[in-house]
Nucleic acid binder design. Structure first.
Lengths: 343, 343
DNA sequence: TATGTATGTGTGCACGCTCACACATGTCTG
DNA sequence: CAGACATGTGTGAGCGTGCACACATACATA
């Protein structure tokens, strides 16, 4: 009696054999139908379609993956603490767009967050163990072990941002110099004379590039004494740096912060010092994060086309999956500027 | 010559047979070693360990999954636009904690974002196709088709928040009434007399529960005329609602906003009206989002133990995987209050 | 008529693993 | 000393697919 449906044993899965039985067609033909390989008659097609519906068939991913040696999964690896992960506005946009592009090609995005040594080995195992067919790497560090692993495995990959060292992995980046020049020019254009920059971590390429753009834009107004590097990209660092700038030059009337969080920190320091923005001091940032929209006054900043970047990285991976050799290539995408009230 | 290593054909994978050959032990023993099934001698264990290292063996997930009928994947399904996904501070915390718990049990979290009809069918396919062994559902709507699918499939699942209708899926939630009572009491305790609430969407259970807590806390000071519902949980809605409150009662001196975004919107409206916070009006929120920390002044708010919730949901899924029947059960986790400067 | 080509179909095997079972050995009991 | 039991090991079958190949059939061509 109780044998009809064993209590614990799960129900037998519906397989391609069931569809074969129900449709009167062989497994091979059904497989061709499922994979659009052609050579399926209209009558067979219809019979299979009905049978699939009738028996409630869904192809088994594991079996398919075992046979084809493909998983239809792409890893989206974020090298960042979880905390940053859900605060960074750029990541979400890249994720969204990459997911859209991959979905259309019938791939699934698997998000892996790399924040400790332990997760590194787990993720390495994932990449090696055939969990995924390719990888999109975001916020890769200099000398990143992850990048080394990906290159050793030779799996199709793409990364956001220009790599610090030598790397064969194709990448997508914005033109930091040009973007920084564009936004800094606004400060000059509105008549600011004593213009400072909060540079960000000096070891980061993006920071140095933004400084180059700034230098080029402010021209004769440039004063090396008003360029302050910070230990990180955080709000606190912006606050501290702005205080230091005010100490060095109380008459400062313009600030370019290398990212929005720093800019907001700077604005807090200005408020503390009794300076008005943009009345006394014009402030511009970089990223167009949520903070830029919500700050008071709204922060003028550089908007990076993160969706575009995400989509391009996904496309790069797909192209490699099709056999294209994209090693040592890259793409640069244009930025735009969002004018709000802070400058 | 060129046959030694075919150009396009990928290298043959290292399998358990290679480990068997290198170690002089049979497949069966290796499998037992890999799965900690016991009955492996110390000498065999050592030989296998060395061989694995030597040949660089990594178990193939697909094959394992095919044989065991388990994927070691758990879906984290977010029913929310991508945009909300990376703005909502609560999601990230749940994600982090769930990921940690599952990792420890050697499960992998797969994040699925449900934002269109199309993704719904893709996700349903995922759940049905044996991609995952279980699911954690976040921000489930009333009458959510996703919830129906999960229940039909009968796969181990857990969800955040009390379900609107009947559901057998176990859930974890905070005590909204108690939390709202706690934070509202502060307004009364600091001598506020004309206390308003911006309620949030009336159709949402959480909003109604928070209103109940508020009502209980303010007691005799309660004025139904100062309770304003909003169409959504957004910043703009908070701004509009606060303007309306100021119109109805210019002497308002306390506001409980049903979430932080609303609270920040309300503070913007107060600033516009020339009111100081907390001098003229005390403001409290709910969520302890990033906005609460960064607002000026810092927002006093309710901190939901999102990590705790995420961890508990993960544990619920794991327990079901082990055979426990958790249907129709739930857990309530306690909140805490973060006092900052806004009240 | 013999041959070629395009289309359509079915079968055996491989993918890499786990699990059940058969079997071997050693130790402890009565 | 026979039996029971725990420990350790190897082998065959099966998980559900895709793919190569053998094999049909229909029609066009020489």
């Amino acid at each position: 009696m109780s044998n009809e449906q064993p209590e614990t044993g799960r129900a037998r899965r519906v397989t391609i054999f069931d569809v074969a039985a129900a449709s009167g067609v062989s497994r091979g033909t059904i497989s061709r139908y499922l994979n659009d390989s052609g050579y399926v008659s209209e009558s067979a097609r219809q019979a299979i379609k009905d049978a699939v519906e009738e028996v409630g068939y869904v192809p088994n991913t594991a079996a398919r993956s075992l046979a084809t040696r493909q998983t239809k999964n792409i890893a989206f690896v974020v090298h960042e603490s979880h905390n940053m992960f859900y605060n960074d506005p750029n990541l979400g946009g890249m994720l969204t767009a990459a997911n859209r592009v991959l979905s259309e090609a019938d791939f699934q995005l698997v998000i892996l967050i790399l924040d400790t040594e332990q997760t590194l080995s787990r993720i390495a195992g994932h990449l090696r163990g055939g969990y995924v067919d390719g990888a999109i790497l975001v916020s890769v560090r200099a000398e990143d072990p992850l990048l080394r692993i990906v290159q050793e495995l030779g799996i199709p990959a793409a990364m956001a941002g220009r790599p610090a060292g030598a790397s064969s992995v194709p990448w997508v980046d914005v033109d930091n110099v040009e973007a920084a020049r564009g936004i800094s020019a606004r400060l000059v254009g509105t008549g600011r004379k004593r213009i400072a920059m909060i540079e960000g971590p000096e070891t980061m390429r993006a920071a140095r590039e933004r400084l180059a753009g700034f230098t080029s834009a402010v021209g004769a107004h440039f004063d090396a004494n008003l360029v302050i590097p910070t230990p990180d990209w955080g709000h606190e660092s912006g606050f501290d740096a702005m205080r230091e700038i005010l100490r060095r030059e109380p008459a400062v009337d313009g600030v370019f912060a290398a990212c929005d969080a720093i800019a907001i920190g700077a604005m807090d320091a200005l408020r503390e010092a009794g300076k008005s923005v943009p009345g006394d001091v014009g402030v511009v940032g970089f990223d167009d994060s949520l903070w830029a929209k919500r700050s008071f006054p709204g922060l003028s900043t550089v908007r990076q086309p993160v969706e575009e970047m995400g989509a391009r990285m996904a496309a790069m991976v797909l192209r490699q999956l099709k056999g294209e050799d994209l090693r040592h290539t890259h793409e640069i995408v244009p930025t735009s500027i969002v004018w709000r009230d802070s400058a």
